[in-house]
Design a protein around this nucleic acid. Structure first.
Length: 974
DNA sequence: AGGTTGACATA
DNA sequence: GTATGTCAACCTT
């Protein structure tokens, strides 16, 4: 145990009683064994071990122990014979659960601690003290007030049933005294359940008030005569001794001679098969499934442990049970590791082998041509509990696609295709007719819908957003799902492509049938409905089969790499969210774009004439090659650098410099390029994307196209709509709300710099963000010693460029380029920046080192970004990877934060009874459309979700700020 | 017809 | 200096 370590101590005995009374009674189906408390206990443990980041604890434990009472006789009975004397025997249906909960603890591979003569609370107090002395933090999993005396700067409590953290402020709020006075408070109030006498007539409110007045119990008893209220005064004087005894009873003993050291408490990865065996034996089916999924174990291959009602010692109650470890009889109920099932790692390997051993050449693919056969497959899928699934359709655009067929696979080599909308292509001239022997689309969907929405059947797909959206258009919201593309992406975002074809090749050396071979290309291109059913079957089933095989190989790797939570919290839930955003689309003013296009055309034509005039000849202005020859060859202007292909460089920056020297032509070229860019990419292209049915623009988001976790937008790209220039912003005004509605734009202010301030822990930056001051001005002031008041804009501009440079993994070369200054001067700036903010240099060095040591860096939520080339011998490749390693945790953490906001947004809006719809995401901005009347109610909900998006998994050291505004068009809303 | 390059739009 | 996507021109097949 060292600084930064975090110990979780579960108050096992306390939990049992609380769960028994709080949770609905539950009995094991097969024999009526009462298991309600055990079930709650197991769910709680699993949540703590797997998902502590996303509970209110917000922290992943490094050490873990579950602590129980040993017996009813403790040292307290020596102090006070009546202690706990009026406790009645536990209810009959709770008794067998005491032993089961200890078994559960061991099945979870967690230390199970108890000690004769001491209560669980004393052990907890002792470990709290030891952890604190070793520099570690502790979280006590309990809400028992008896433990609140332990809360302090390094110790907090967590109520697992209310998902609530209890720290010093919460104790004060609840009891009116800080944790260190809890002992005195309890000494005064007593406890009827434990038969601690206390002072009659003194309750928590009075006790708190007295302690506030006198400071502590001893002083109070000494000066009791000063108490004004007569009855109260008398009671305290009469019961002073009882209060002292009570204090000794409630004060926890923090020097129990414990036998287990922290080395014994290091949190072990769960032993999947053993745990599953236990859970199956208990018949906790949904938890079994979750555990199997997370650990990559195959639950169906693991036998259930035989767990019987225990007789003998345990049947008499919790306090008579022998000390841990329990006898061999209990132990024998478990599958030992390696006996019934392998560890996740070996299982992963076995699966990979199995998936590759069923030779892809030997596959047997079915074509389902009647409803009865389809229903047989559906029944088999229900039995299996998981399946891979894909759609075939007439378009790559899921908003325009017509469903042509569906394919499913149940295990490697066993897949089927259901043709639904195939048409014969060549047989007559009157147009294609429907192919015979196909299940009617409506019948097939009606049969499939219960399966596709069955919560106990996992649907595996590749790039499932496409299929999900297509089916959503038919009224089916598929759930639950897994996406092999996203699993592969989480495992290694920039370690290769994540198309199904690429994965088939990478993992199985198998080359899939190219889509082109099925639908042709160029003038021979046909839609999938015209592909003959046999070829379609081969193609579609191969896809489903390969997705199933890839899933079996990759899914377990999430668990062995500790990436389950990234996948489940940041990737998988985004699939339906983005699908809905794509489906909604956004309205654009076609007329406005058309008018703009005409205007741009005229201006471009006029500029073209000017250019030809100045150049003395007509040439293709859009050709950098021809332009370079004119400018630097014919006209002899001072050319700058060459591009890598030996061409003259004609970038806007260079042309601007020439223009500044008074040359007319470069100025015209820059203007012409801007106008023609706006025209071709926006005013001309966007209207072409308007969907004729919805009359809206539907982009497509790519979830797995960036290494950092950002999403990208294409066809059309709505993440690069112009904003910088006045001309460009006119295009933005064409993005509008429907009549009676408004667009809302909500964007994070300086999210990346805030993330940097958090990760690198820079005091000045944290302070500046806490104070809400101008961050670039603060940087300038810090660096150049210029006061913020009356700062020249040029000074601030430089500081701003440096701040951005830092985020991008600054180099003197890049900064010099950006600011058009000498490289040496840029180098001086960087040097000075590092002197002022040494934490930034440390951050940069540590990310580079991490990438070199481990091959990857990570975001604050655990997403990994791999940089295998960081050790390249080529200095420029190496430097590039170093800069990317510095940038990725910043860009990636910001991307993760907005992902979390998006995942929560629809639910938050619905919960608030609002009808706002999220339409677009632009990296740090979300765009919504909502009814005009709801705007004011909607803005705070959006801000709330976005500003708290990191919580509770990560508590940022700086606040997040969101600016949100509503208007009729995107330009005014932003 | 399809791929590459240089330019430029965004965060 | 990070991360994208799209366009026109140009080159290869």
């Amino acid at each position: 145990m060292k600084k930064g370590d975090h110990l979780f101590l579960v108050d096992g005995s306390g939990y049992i009683f609380r769960a028994y009374h709080a949770l609905p009674p539950l009995t094991r189906k097969s024999d009526g064994l009462p298991v309600g408390a055990v079930s709650g206990f197991c769910n709680m443990l699993w949540k703590l071990m797997r998902d502590a980041r996303d509970t209110d604890v917000g922290i992943t434990p490094t050490h873990f122990a579950v602590i129980f009472d040993y017996s009813s006789k403790t040292f307290r009975n020596e102090l006070y014979a009546e202690y706990k004397a009026n406790r009645s025997a536990p209810p009959d249906d709770l008794i067998p659960q005491f032993g089961l909960i200890r078994e559960a603890t061991r099945a979870f591979h967690l230390p199970c601690l108890e000690m004769e003569g001491f209560e669980a609370d004393d052990l907890i107090a002792t470990y709290c003290r030891l952890a604190c002395e070793a520099g570690g933090d502790t979280t006590i999993i309990s809400s028992d007030k008896d433990l609140m005396q332990l809360v302090g700067p390094t110790v907090s409590m967590y109520d697992p049933m209310k998902d609530r953290q209890i720290g010093i402020p919460e104790v004060i709020e609840k009891w009116g005294v800080p944790p260190e006075k809890m002992i005195d408070l309890q000494a005064l109030t007593g406890d009827s359940i434990d038969n601690v006498p206390g002072v009659p007539g003194i309750g928590p409110k009075t006790a708190a008030q007295l302690l506030e007045q006198f400071g502590d119990l001893d002083t109070l008893l000494e000066r009791a005569a000063e108490i004004k209220q007569e009855k109260r005064r008398q009671s305290i004087i009469d019961n002073a001794e009882k209060a002292r005894i009570s204090r000794d009873l409630v004060r926890l003993k923090n020097d129990v001679p414990v036998t287990e050291g922290f080395d014994d408490l290091v949190l072990q990865p769960p032993d999947g098969p053993r745990l599953i065996s236990f859970l199956k034996g208990m018949e906790f089916n949904s938890l079994t499934r979750r555990v199997a999924e997370a650990t990559g174990a195959d639950a169906s291959a693991i036998g259930a442990a035989s767990i019987r009602v225990q007789h003998g010692a345990e049947a008499h109650g919790p306090d008579l049970e022998p000390a841990a470890p329990s006898g061999p009889a209990a132990e024998a109920h478990y599958a030992k590791p390696g006996e019934t099932g392998p560890s996740p790692a070996t299982l992963a390997q076995a699966r990979a082998e199995a998936a590759s051993t069923v030779r892809i050449d030997d596959r047997k693919y079915d074509c389902i041509r009647d409803l009865a056969t389809l229903n047989e497959w559906i029944a088999e899928a229900r039995e299996t509990g998981f399946m891979s699934f894909r759609t075939e359709s007439t378009s790559l655009d899921p908003m325009r696609a017509e469903l042509v067929g569906v394919a499913l696979a149940l295990r490697p080599g066993r897949a089927a295709y259901v043709p639904l909308g195939h048409r014969s292509s060549a047989d007559d001239l009157l147009g294609a007719g429907r192919v015979d022997n196909q299940v009617a689309l409506e019948d097939a969907l009606a049969a499939l819908k219960p399966l596709l929405t069955d919560p106990s059947v996992l649907k595996v797909g590749h790039d499932f957003k496409y299929d999900w959206l297509l089916l959503s258009r038919h009224g089916i919201d598929v759930a639950p799902i897994d996406d092999t593309m996203l699993i592969s992406y989480v495992l290694g975002a920039n370690t290769g492509a994540h198309t199904l074809e690429a994965l088939a090749e990478r993992w199985f050396g198998h080359f899939m049938i190219p889509f082109k071979d099925i639908v042709g290309s160029g003038r021979n291109l046909v839609t999938f409905d015209l592909v003959d059913v046999e070829r379609a079957t081969t193609y579609a089933t191969e896809g489903a089969d390969i997705a199933m095989r890839v899933w079996q190989v990759l899914k377990p790797r999430l668990a062995t790499n500790g990436l389950v939570s990234v996948y489940e919290r940041l990737e998988r839930p985004l699939v339906p969210v983005l699908a809905r955003m794509e489906e909604r689309g956004i309205s654009v003013d076609r007329q406005m774009l058309s008018r703009l296009s005409g205007e741009f055309a005229q201006r471009a034509a006029a500029l073209e004439e000017d250019v030809y005039q100045a150049a003395g000849e007509r040439f293709t202005i859009g050709s950098p090659k021809q332009l370079g020859d004119i400018l630097f060859g014919k006209m002899g202007l001072p050319g700058g650098s060459k591009t890598k292909s030996g061409q003259w460089s004609t970038t806007a920056q260079l042309l601007e410099e020439l223009a500044a020297e008074g040359h007319e032509l470069p100025r015209r070229i820059v203007d012409w390029r801007q106008i023609t860019k706006l025209k071709s990419t926006y005013t001309d292209a966007l209207p072409e994307y308007i969907n004729p049915d919805t009359r809206r623009l539907h982009t497509s988001y790519a979830l797995a196209s960036t290494p950092t976790g950002r999403i990208s937008s294409s066809e059309p790209n709505l993440q690069n709509i112009p904003i910088r220039t006045a001309e460009g912003r006119r295009i933005r005004t064409a993005f509008i709300a429907e009549k009676g509605n408004k667009l809302i734009s909500a964007d994070y202010s300086q999210i990346e710099l805030r993330v940097l301030a958090h990760i690198a822990d820079i005091p000045q930056l944290r302070q500046a963000f806490a104070d809400g001051v101008d961050i670039h001005a603060m940087t300038a002031s810090e660096m150049f010693g210029v006061p913020v008041e009356g700062m020249p804009s040029e000074v601030r501009r430089r500081a701003k460029a440096i701040n951005f440079g830092i985020i991008y993994g600054i180099s003197a070369f890049g900064l010099a380029n950006q600011l058009s200054i000498e490289r040496s001067e840029a180098g001086d700036y960087i040097k000075r920046y590092f002197e002022r903010f040494p934490g930034i240099r440390d951050y940069m060095e540590s990310r580079k080192q991490m990438a070199r040591d481990r091959g990857y860096v990570e975001t604050i939520f655990g997403r990994r970004i791999h940089y295998p080339e960081i050790r390249a011998s080529n200095p420029s490749i190496r430097a590039f990877n170093e800069r990317a390693s510095i940038n990725a945790p910043i860009q990636g953490s910001a991307a993760d934060i907005i992902r979390r906001a998006m995942i929560r947004m629809d639910g938050a809006l619905a919960k608030a009874g609002l009808s706002a719809r999220m339409l677009l995401q632009v990296h740090d901005e979300l765009v919504f459309e909502t009814a005009e009347a709801e705007v004011e109610a909607t803005l705070p909900v959006i801000r709330e979700v976005m500003e708290n998006a990191a919580m509770p998994a990560v508590s940022l050291a700086v606040p997040l700020r969101v600016d949100a505004r509503a208007a009729d068009n995107w330009d005014e809303a932003h």
